[in-house]
Write a protein that binds this DNA or RNA. Structure first.
Length: 554
DNA sequence: CACGGGTGCGCG
DNA sequence: AAAGCGCGCACCCGTG
């Protein structure tokens, strides 16, 4: 059953259990109410926005099993091709659109500012009305089952994001500091660390440019050219091709500079407290449905610092990642039985080699990536015809998605998330090129932009469906982890998710349960595959490593 | 001095 | 323009 929560006034919340069961409680009583209802019948809580409702509950020690996040669901249903005809999708943009959070809207009194003239101020957005409109849109859609699954998975993801931030990723300040000190020298009170300063001096010497600021790409580029080098930029991959005594210190400087500025002592001070890294996850923050983060760069945690992620004493980390997730998603999307056969077992790329389509594993990988990203030239582009011959259905699916995007159309993921349509700028470029008086330059530009958008939609169907698989995987895993833990204790006493990186999760678990967790990770992956692709026999193998430190995984 | 675009690089 | 998708973030530098 559903229980809908809605703020009715500062400090007061309406609790709506059905058409004629409505009550109100003070904020202070909400946690007890939720705890009691959760123990009794595990309802699905319906609320405007998990980011505003759930963290206070978690701080009160209350965990919920299921919810509907109306804001996230609204965003999906507004643009999905599966609900295109619904009232929800055809309405003018309202308070549920955009990042504005209904609970954070100005309070009633401030609306008085508007009522001297003009239309009546808009009524506060009713969560109950919004929920009804969403249910109606789903029920009338072409694929209600898929959409229900998508909304449930998206909402579960929102719960998990809040729980992961609450629990935090176990993180050793000491180890991180040791690592920085070993590479950069001791933490300076101000300015550059000693090792970077030495490299800068070496660089100035080698380029005979005493005042050079190594942090300024234009200055560095000019200095390199003065030294007779054919550099066109200061990108590392390009510098590596050059032969000059300045190159080695410059590359080392750039590497260390990156570490220092992105994950140095300042980052540590800002983001790690009480032995936990607590990034701000944004479920649905990417157009494809992937998560984003705000601050802390949690999804870019460099491999070199992962050794500082360390389980608590008596606990373990289970680091799990889905092997070749996106190609397998493409396999399911296209129902390509040849590719499914190649992917049986653990290494899809080896399976592709075994079909004879390509000679080496590296080629299989680059060809698959090229198919999903839209490579046209280079090794990857050259391998495409062979891939298409061996796996016609899979390749046709991404080609079709690309053609749709090139002509300005919209594509939709497995469960119903649709790509945004191209903007007005894109359309006017296409129109300018289609007129009888268009120039060659206009036509070239239009074709190029059309192909750009085609690569986006080509990748969208795969990336968005993979994000859905990952949400299902995590939601399933979360349920299993709860069952593994002791009942009644706070959820952080049980195995719990602490990190998520697109196709990879980390569970923090009491050591004695680590093997059970590893098993749960694997079983959950298979379950996610069935949720998305039913009986179609595409495998989703995962590797699960039981380790003390993230740095020890793979 | 604030802002925003460009550059470069970390992750999948 | 790295051969192609999706991001976040720090820093530089020109502009208002």
């Amino acid at each position: 059953m559903h229980i809908l929560l809605e703020r009715v006034a500062p400090g007061r919340v309406a609790v709506i259990r059905g058409d004629d069961d409505r009550s109100e409680v003070a904020d202070a009583e909400l946690a007890d109410l939720v705890r009691a209802a959760e123990a009794e019948r595990r309802p699905r809580w319906v609320w405007s926005d998990t980011r505003t409702w759930y963290p206070p509950l978690l701080r009160s020690g209350v965990r919920v099993e299921r919810c509907v996040d109306l804001r996230l669901s609204h965003a999906i249903l507004r643009s999905s091709t599966l609900t295109a005809g619904s009232a929800l999708a055809s309405a003018v943009p309202g308070p549920w659109d955009g990042a504005a959070q209904p609970d954070a809207l100005p309070e009633e009194g401030s609306a008085a500012l508007f009522d001297l003239d003009g239309p009546e101020p808009e009524a506060p957005p009713s969560a109950a009305a919004e929920f009804a409109a969403q249910q109606e849109a789903v029920a009338a859609s072409a694929e209600p089952g898929r959409l229900r699954l998508l909304l449930a998975a998206e909402s579960a993801g929102a719960l998990i994001a809040a729980e992961m931030q609450h629990a935090g990723l176990p993180y050793s300040v000491e180890r991180h500091d040791q690592l920085l000190t070993a590479l950069l020298g001791p933490r300076p009170r101000f300015g550059r660390p000693a090792v970077m300063e030495e490299l800068a001096a070496e660089l100035r010497e080698a380029l005979e440019t005493p005042g050079l600021n190594p942090d300024s790409p234009p200055e560095v580029l000019k200095a390199l050219q003065r030294a007779g080098l054919m550099a066109t930029s200061t990108r590392s991959w390009e510098l590596r091709e050059l032969d000059h005594p300045a190159i080695a210190p410059l590359l080392r400087y750039k590497k260390l500079s990156r570490l220092h500025s992105a994950n140095g002592w300042t980052w540590l001070d800002t983001w790690v407290a009480d032995g936990r890294f607590r990034p701000d996850y944004i479920p649905g923050g990417v157009v494809t449905g992937r998560w984003a983060t705000r601050g802390g760069g949690a999804l870019q945690l460099p491999k070199e610092v992962r050794a500082a992620v360390v389980a608590d004493p008596g606990w373990k980390l289970v680091v799990a990642d889905a092997a070749q997730l996106e190609p397998r998603i493409l396999t399911g999307l296209s129902a390509d039985t040849a590719m499914a056969a190649a992917g049986r077992g653990t290494d899809l790329y080896a399976g592709i080699v075994a079909t004879g389509a390509v000679a080496e594993r590296a080629q299989a990988k680059v060809a698959m990536l090229g198919a999903m990203y839209g490579a046209t030239t280079g090794d990857s582009g050259r391998l495409m015809p062979r891939l298409a011959r061996a796996f016609p259905r899979a390749v046709r699916l991404v080609e079709d998605a690309a053609r749709t995007g090139e002509s300005g159309g919209v594509v939709t993921s497995r469960l119903g998330r649709s790509s945004p349509p191209p903007g007005p700028g894109w359309r006017s470029i296409q129109e300018a090129a289609s007129g009888s008086d268009s120039t060659q330059a206009e036509e070239r530009r239009a074709r190029s932009r059309a192909r750009d958008w085609g690569r986006f939609t080509r990748n969208f169907v795969v990336q968005a469906s993979a994000a859905e698989w990952a949400l299902c995987w995590m939601a399933e895993l979360r349920n299993r982890l709860t069952r593994l833990g002791p009942g009644g204790a706070p959820f952080t006493a049980a195995p719990h998710l602490v990190y998520f990186l697109h196709d990879e999760v980390i569970v923090h678990t009491p050591a004695e349960l680590a093997d059970d967790v590893a098993e749960a990770v694997t079983v959950s992956a298979a379950a996610a595959g069935r949720l998305l692709f039913g009986a179609f026999p595409v495998d989703f193998p995962v590797t699960a490593a039981v380790v003390d430190s993230y740095g020890d995984a793979k």
